[in-house]
Design a protein around this nucleic acid. Structure first.
Lengths: 196, 196
DNA sequence: GCTGTTTAATAACGGTCGTTACGAAATGTG
DNA sequence: CACATTTCGTAACGACCGTTATTAAACAGC
């Protein structure tokens, strides 16, 4: 019983996700959110909770809807292919939508008032989980002999993540897909091979 | 004639620079600024103008006081030494002050409301100037035979800047100097040599 | 000691922030 | 049709934002 919801919660969350993606947590106001979602404030509060909870749900959705290439990439047979897939899929994601370039996760991670510190910590934690997955995959590669004995999976993982984060920054600075592809190619030139 | 200024403008700007460094442009309030500078709001306005002008002056000061290693690095004899100096000096800067890790420039570049768009564009422009300087240095290296004929200075410059930006993100995520040094070492492994 | 000028501190401005009472509208059940 | 329940939009809340009018205090020159 009771009145039915008149808006599609998932569609609203998708629209909200894009705004946060572009402006970050604190850069986004409820005015921005209601305009994007086509839904008034109290409806957002009743559907998602407060701003922080709403952002958390947008972040979850970002990982499952846009970063779904990561599980696929991790299953590639060689570490080099894993790295290459991460790079080129990230480039595509970072440049696909002109209205919100870069990476949702990284965009909100850097700056913020003291009040937004919990959100920053949340993004830091999620980022670390992604890097851990990649590091574990590289440890497996080393165990399989795909990476040489001298390879350091933690350093390699941190390195590739650094390139990914850097490309997210550059995408925000207006870099084209082609330029970022040149960056990725250069980044892969350092990748250790079975031989060495 | 007239009353004398009772506070040191340069010291105040230094303190303000550190707050912007940590919280970005919009994440910093005038309450933060007055606390850090030990100066009331009207004094800041009379000395620096409004918030945007104040931020611009802090950015200038950041480049001349903290990024002064860049001109030095660019004068190193080989492109590899240039890249290495940029990387290791950046690591030092990004981790030297626990209260404001990362890079002032990158911190404010990603997120922001529509009202902060002019500031974002300013940071994007300044970042691009830095990359241009580095690219020109690599073009010179190529002309001198320090880089092989196949080397692409623009791609190499973008690549190294990506690593630098990525390390700034990781510093904000709490990375230690040692971990970032491992990243830099890995990044340099990709650097082209005279031979190839 | 005035006078004119610059700075200092207090306090307030209008606007926007995130959040939420509140009453009207819309549903399923008796 | 009444009823309880849920959602809706309006409108407002207190808090904080960047900015500034205002007044008192500190100086230089006559």
């Amino acid at each position: 019983m009771g009145r039915h919801r008149e808006f599609d919660v998932e569609k609203a969350l998708d629209a909200i996700l894009c705004v946060f993606w572009s402006k970050g947590y604190e850069g986004t106001s409820y005015t921005d959110l209601t305009e994007a979602a086509g839904v008034e404030r109290p409806a957002l509060y009743s559907a998602f909770g407060n701003k922080e909870a709403l952002f958390a749900q947008a972040l979850d959705r970002y990982y499952e809807r846009y970063l779904d290439y990561i599980p696929d990439a991790l299953q590639k047979p060689t570490s080099r292919e894993v790295a290459a897939h991460m790079l080129y899929n990230a480039i595509d994601l970072n440049t696909r939508y002109p209205k919100h370039t870069g990476c949702f996760n990284i965009t909100g991670l850097l700056a913020g008032s003291d009040g937004a510190e919990p959100v920053r910590q949340m993004l830091i934690e999620v980022r670390a989980r992604g890097e851990a997955l990649f590091r574990e995959r590289l440890e497996r590669a080393k165990a399989e002999g795909d990476l040489p004995e001298t390879a350091k999976p933690d350093a390699l993982a941190a390195y590739l993540m650094a390139v990914l984060h850097g490309m997210a920054v550059q995408a925000k600075a207006g870099f084209s897909r082609e330029t970022l592809e040149a960056v990725a190619e250069q980044a892969l030139a350092a990748w250790p091979t079975r031989g060495s």
